[in-house]
């Protein structure tokens, strides 16, 4: 939505492939952190709909996406004609990594960015 929002959280709402405790804890930590973020119900659904928001998000410099496997996320964006930049995007995998590690990285990195800007 804005240049300031650099965190995207995918809820994967229509499947049970991400452990509920992981996605709940990441969301909880994000809401407690006080950082702006965008949360979407399901990146797959947005990709199938070619949601124009994906183009906007892909254009965000230094965006961090917490969803599933990076290869899947990249090609979902690409399928919606919104390819992600190769080097300036960070994709965190809630299917594999712990909630604490993901949330820590999201919030910590955001704080660093705020300090330096």
């Amino acid at each position: 939505m804005t240049q300031a929002v650099k965190i995207l959280y995918c809820r994967c709402a229509y499947a049970k492939v991400i452990a509920p405790e992981v996605k709940d804890e990441v969301l909880q930590r994000l809401t407690q952190s006080g950082v702006p973020f965008e949360a979407v119900p399901d990146l797959c659904e947005m990709s199938a709909r070619r949601d124009p928001a994906l183009k906007r998000l892909a254009a965000e410099d230094g965006i961090k996406i917490t969803a599933c496997y990076p290869r899947a996320v990249r090609w979902l964006f690409s399928a919606a004609q919104a390819p992600l930049p190769k080097d300036t995007v960070d994709i965190l995998n809630m299917r594999v990594d712990s909630a604490a590690a993901i949330a820590g990285r999201l919030v910590q990195e955001h704080s660093k960015g705020e300090e330096s800007s």
């Binding site: 300031a4 969301l27 399901d42 659904e45």
Partner: peptide, 19 residues
């Protein structure tokens, strides 16, 4: 936020007017 997401709505948590 969790309930809106589970109903299928995208949610932007906005912290400033400029957003």
């Amino acid at each position: 936020t969790r309930k809106l997401l589970d109903k299928g709505y995208a949610v932007s948590v906005i912290r400033s007017d400029s957003q």
